[in-house]
């Protein structure tokens, strides 16, 4: 998680003038468990990620859960 955040705060690199060139950045909308995992995987795959979350912290609904089914592992 720290990694994705770190990348977010850095300045994006300059794009080439050619419009045909593909961007090297991705945007993930939503910082729940799905969004966070996607952002982490994209970072690992060599992309700069903007993780956009409307509330003050990532984690979403999973952070509210006590334990998870069926192993009763802790959610956090």
């Amino acid at each position: 998680m720290a990694k994705a955040k770190q990348k977010k705060t850095g300045a994006p690199a300059r794009k080439s003038a050619k419009t045909a060139a593909q961007s090297g950045s991705m945007m993930v909308v939503g910082g729940g468990v799905a969004g966070v995992q996607a952002a982490l995987d994209l970072t690992d795959l060599g992309y700069y990620v903007y993780l956009v979350e409307k509330s003050a912290a990532v984690g979403g609904a999973m952070a509210q859960l006590d334990k998870t089914f069926p192993t009763n592992d802790c959610s956090l």
Binding site: A13, A21, Q22, S23, G24, G46
Partner: peptide, 19 residues
Amino acid sequence: AAAGISAGQIKAGRGKDIV
């Protein structure tokens, strides 16, 4: 899966913007 598919689609952008 979505990370993988979008990486496949935007292959040319890989590594460009990472710091």
